[in-house]
Computed example of a mutant assay.
Amino acid sequence: MTILVTGGAGFIGCNLVRRLQSDGADDVRILDNFSTGFEENLSGVDVEIHRGSILDEEALARAAKGAEAIVHLAARPSVPRSIADPMASHQANATGTLMVLEAARREEAHVVLASSSSVYGANPTLPKNEDLRPMPVSPYAVSKLATEAYALSYQSVYGLTVLPFRFFNVYGPWQRAGHAYAAVVPQFVSQALAGLPLTVHGDGEQSRDFTFVDTVTETLSLAARERISSPDPVNLAFGTRHTLLDVISRLETILGTPLTVEHVEPRAGDVRHSQADQSRLRELVASVTPVDLDTGLAGTVEWMKRLNAPNSGR
Rank of each mutant, 00 (worst) to 15 (best):
I3M: 01
N15W: 08
N33Q: 12
E39I: 14
E40T: 08
V45N: 05
E48C: 06
E48S: 09
E57S: 07
A59E: 03
A59V: 03
A63N: 00
A63C: 01
A64Q: 05
K65C: 13
K65S: 15
G66D: 05
G66F: 02
H72W: 02
A74D: 00
A75E: 08
P86F: 08
A88T: 15
N93E: 10
G96N: 00
M99F: 12
S117K: 05
G121N: 14
A122Q: 03
K128L: 10
M135N: 06
S138M: 06
S138T: 00
Y140K: 03
V142M: 14
A149K: 11
L152Q: 11
L152F: 08
Y154N: 05
S156R: 15
T161L: 10
G172Q: 10
H179S: 13
Y181H: 15
Y181P: 03
F188W: 09
S190L: 03
L198V: 12
L198Q: 09
D203W: 11
F210L: 13
E218I: 11
S221L: 14
L222Q: 14
L222V: 10
A223G: 04
I228G: 01
F238N: 04
T240D: 14
D246C: 09
R250L: 10
R250N: 09
R250M: 13
H263I: 07
P266G: 12
P266E: 09
Q275K: 07
D277H: 04
R280V: 14
V285H: 08
V288L: 05
T295P: 02
G299S: 01
T300K: 03
R306G: 12
